[in-house]
Nucleic acid binder design. Structure first.
Length: 350
DNA sequence: AACAATTCCAACCGCTCTTGT
DNA sequence: CACAAGAGCGGTTGGAATTGT
């Protein structure tokens, strides 16, 4: 649709990256930071001309003839200093399975809960290991239901159609005005109640990354049309152990319908998250506005209460990752919250 | 040892979303 | 509002590595 290609394919390298290309990309990002991926290859070429010998002593031999997109991917999936290489632990396995049952193939969201793991890595791991693992357990990896179970009316446990707001500190998946309908019976192991799921997620994730988790599941039980069973639970919202909701079928018209209002707020916990590392407040790229002085820090991790949706959160402590070597420094950025609802946390570059 | 089959994962592709003009 | 550019995401692929025959 009238879009220019992301790069001039004729003049770019493809395929596996060489060590020299890696080093050039690392050097460039150490000096200039992330972002502006499309202009990076050109800039890297320029930098190589200006600094024939890099600070690290690496001698540039030629420009970085790579598509900006390719540079971004290489950095995010392979070169970033905070990546945790190596095998997935059993805990990570289970967490991925849980998160997949809730979010579907939202690999980037899942990756956001696993420090040091990338969405690509998780996606590959899912396809090569976990799928098989679930199959061997007799569980359908797509629906998370027992393979023996008869499929029902095409309710697929994927992430609900939602609007997603990405701020510097949190991904907030806001349900639409109408409560999101999810088939939790199919999405989750039958024995698991909401409270159980919450507990599991809480403990697993807290253990995994020692930070914020704001999964909140609310069940909204609605009595529609017929007031069946004197159901006085209309609009009830509870965090308490609720009865497992019945599956919501697409054609449940006329029947008592139980809807799940999925309020899912994920406080991004780690700089490993792509959303966090590369999403910047709109103001940051505008050089003119007053807000442009508030810059986006690509390596931030929030702790404390600032990223939770239930606090006013005037303060937050930022743990800054310094580029180069991944050393974690501790600094106190100026943070302010946009309020209980918006959680627009801003901070000054430090 | 040679070849085929399978596994694994880095990289690519095309689409959507966001943002700026 | 329309359009373009930039960035992010999820699905797919190519080929290296490993395993089986």
């Amino acid at each position: 649709m009238g879009r220019s290609p992301c790069c001039e394919k004729a003049h770019t390298n493809k395929g596996a990256w060489t060590k020299e290309e890696d080093q050039r990309l690392i050097d460039y990002i150490r000096t200039h930071g992330e972002g502006c991926w499309r202009s990076l290859p050109k800039s890297a070429v320029l930098a190589s001309c200006l600094n024939f010998f890099s600070p690290s002593g690496f001698r540039f031999s030629a420009g970085l003839l790579r598509c900006g997109k390719s540079c971004r991917l290489r950095w995010i999936n392979y070169l970033r200093p905070d990546l945790k290489r190596g095998n997935f632990s059993e805990e990570e396995d289970e967490l991925i399975i849980k998160l997949h049952s809730l979010l579907g193939n939202k690999w980037s969201l899942i990756a956001g809960r696993l420090p040091g793991r990338t969405d690509n890595e998780i996606k590959n791991y899912w396809n090569t290991h976990i799928k098989r693992k679930l199959m061997s357990r007799g569980i359908d990896p797509q629906t998370h239901r027992s393979l023996n179970e008869k499929p029902t009316s095409a309710v697929v446990p994927v992430a609900p159609a939602t609007t997603t707001t990405v701020t510097a500190a949190a991904v907030t998946v806001t349900p639409p005005a109408k409560p999101t309908q999810l088939d939790f019976k199919s999405a989750l192991a039958p024995a698991q109640s909401m409270a159980e799921i919450n507990r599991l997620l809480q403990s697993n994730t807290m253990k995994a990354n020692n930070s914020i988790l704001d999964f909140k599941f609310q069940t909204v039980v609605k009595a529609e049309s017929v007031e069946e069973n004197n159901c006085s639970t209309s609009g009830m919202t509870t965090d308490e152990e609720p009865p497992l909701p019945r599956p919501v079928s697409a054609d449940a018209g006329g029947e008592r319908r139980e809807e799940l209002n999925l309020e899912l707020t994920i406080g991004l916990a780690t700089p490993s998250s792509r959303s966090l590392t590369t999403t910047r407040p709109s103001s940051a790229s505008s050089g003119n506005s007053a807000e442009s002085k508030l810059q986006f820090h690509p390596y931030l991790q929030f702790s404390g209460t600032a990223a939770t949706p239930t606090t006013t959160a005037a303060e937050a402590v930022c743990l800054c990752w310094q580029l180069g070597g991944g050393a974690r420094g501790n600094c106190h950025c100026q943070c302010s919250s946009g309020g209980r609802q918006q959680q627009q946390i801003r901070y000054q570059y430090c």
